[in-house]
């Protein structure tokens, strides 16, 4: 494990001791396409994992299987030895427009998942207040989602995912529908929240820069059937900011990931 931490770009030894999510012998096919076959992986506790790989290799499928949105054909996914149904988790969809509830005010969207936890009213209020404070939200949460900009809507989605204080947070290409300026802003919001809440976070991204910028660990997947092409650790101290993108360590890791990616894409 230390090896992986120290030298960017080496395949890590899986360390079950600190594993939060264990994936064993996972198999999934869609019709003819074998997406996963005998896939093993461990996701480390309280670290930020980015998943990156060629188009259609099954990045989203992987987190959807972990989050229980899709059933694997076979294999086992355990979170702290528990089934996903017994785990408190948050999930942020790519398409915030279709994931938020347009009939509820933004604040009620954020409160919605609390209905299914047994919490006293005061605690519910505190959680929402704390979250609003974390984010330093300047938007009027009494507005309906469709009255907000795309970035603000996705911010509401993320708050909705976080309000349950999840053990694991999943993000499926959360910023891909936003413009570049908003993407940069949202990355930093997400990073700040991660630093405050320190929870196991899994991000699927098709933007390598974003994947590395936010990550402690980067999982590079091969083409179908997906295998671990490489597992890279990026331990640049947080908070990272715009300058981090030109930091030599960032450049090295990005170069390495790009090499692996291109090697995988060119493979037949």
């Amino acid at each position: 494990m230390n090896d992986a931490r120290n030298s960017a770009g080496s395949v890590a030894e899986l360390a079950p001791a600190s594993a939060h999510i264990t994936i064993r012998n996972l198999a999934k096919r869609f019709g003819e396409a074998v997406v996963y076959d005998g896939f093993d992986f461990d996701i480390q506790r309280n670290r930020f994992l980015s998943i990156f790989g060629p188009n259609g290799c099954g990045k989203s499928t992987l987190i959807n299987m972990i989050a229980g949105l899709i059933n694997p054909d076979s294999g086992e996914i355990l979170i702290d030895g528990k089934n996903i149904r017994d785990v408190r988790f948050g999930y942020v969809f790519q398409n915030y427009r279709e994931a938020l509830f347009p009939w509820s005010r933004s604040i009620d969207n954020i409160r919605y998942p609390l209905k299914f936890l047994d919490l006293p009213r005061a605690e519910q209020r505190d959680r929402v207040d704390r979250l609003v404070e974390y984010f330093g939200v300047k938007i009027d949460l009494n507005r309906y989602p469709y009255e907000l900009s795309g970035g603000q809507q996705q911010l509401v989605s993320i708050m909705r995912a976080l309000v349950v204080e999840p053990e694991v947070l999943f993000l499926d290409e959360p910023f891909s529908a936003l413009d570049y300026e908003m993407t940069l802003f949202m990355r930093d919001q997400l990073q700040r929240v991660f630093m405050k809440m320190q929870m196991t976070t899994v991000l699927v991204s098709h933007d390598l820069e974003e994947a590395i910028y936010l990550a402690d660990d980067i999982l590079l997947l091969s083409r179908r059937p997906a295998r671990v092409a490489d597992f890279v650790t990026f331990d640049l101290e947080r908070a990272r900011h715009a300058d981090s993108l030109t930091d030599p360590r960032f450049v090295t890791v990005k170069g390495h990931c790009l090499d692996v990616f291109q090697r995988e894409v060119r493979k037949d």
Binding site: A67, G68, L69, F89, Y91, F93, N95, E98, A99, L100, F101, W103, Y112, P113, K115, F116, L117, R160, V164
Partner: peptide
């Protein structure tokens, strides 16, 4: 919308609540 139904399920809404909170609206 399938995404909206999924979102409710992911947040722990039981089947009946998915119907009343999402599908009906």
């Amino acid at each position: 919308r399938k995404t909206r139904i999924l979102a409710a399920k992911v947040m722990g809404a039981p089947r009946l609540r998915v119907l009343t909170d999402v599908v009906l609206l």
